[in-house]
Amino acid sequence: MKITVDEAKCCGAGQCVLLAPEVFDQREEDGIVVLLDAEPVEERHAAVREAASMCPAAAIRLGDTA
Rank of each mutant, 00 (worst) to 15 (best):
D30K: 00
I32Y: 10
C55F: 00
I3F: 04
G63R: 11
I32G: 10
F24C: 10
C10V: 02
D64Y: 08
E7W: 00
E39A: 13
C10Q: 08
V34N: 05
G63T: 07
V41L: 05
K9H: 12
A8P: 04
L62V: 00
R27W: 07
V23N: 07
D64W: 11
V5I: 12
E42A: 12
A58Q: 15
C10R: 12
I60L: 04
D30C: 01
P40G: 06
R44W: 13
D25P: 06
T4W: 01
V23G: 06
H45D: 10
V23D: 08
C16D: 03
I3M: 01
D37P: 00
A66D: 15
A59T: 04
I32L: 11
G63A: 14
M1R: 11
D6I: 00
C10F: 05
A20F: 10
D25S: 15
G63D: 15
R61S: 14
E22K: 13
F24G: 02
C16R: 05
E22F: 03
L36F: 01
F24D: 01
E42K: 12
R44H: 15
P21I: 07
V33Q: 09
D6N: 14
G14F: 07
K9W: 03
E22S: 10
D6E: 05
V33G: 12
C11S: 14
P40I: 07
A8I: 10
G12Q: 13
L35D: 00
G31K: 06
P21W: 02
R61Y: 02
A13S: 15
D30S: 06
G14D: 11
K9L: 13
S53C: 08
P56K: 08
A8S: 14
A59F: 02
A66S: 14
I3T: 01
V17Y: 03
E28N: 09
L19Y: 06
K2V: 11
E7C: 06
A38H: 03
A46M: 09
D30L: 00
H45I: 03
A59P: 07
A57S: 13
K2E: 11
C16Y: 00
D30F: 07
P21K: 00
A38L: 05
A13E: 15
P56L: 01
L18C: 12
E39Y: 03
P21N: 08
F24T: 04
E28G: 10
P56Y: 08
C55P: 07
R44A: 15
M1Q: 14
V48D: 01
L18S: 14
L19V: 03
Q26S: 06
Q15M: 15
D37T: 14
C11E: 15
E50N: 09
T65H: 15
H45P: 02
V17K: 06
A8E: 15
S53G: 09
D64G: 10
R49G: 01
L62S: 09
D25F: 00
L36I: 03
A46H: 09
A66F: 08
L19G: 13
H45N: 03
E28H: 03
A52L: 11
V41I: 04
T65V: 15
C16H: 06
C16M: 05
D64C: 07
D37V: 10
V41H: 08
F24K: 00
M1I: 13
E42H: 01
A13M: 14
P56W: 01
K9S: 13
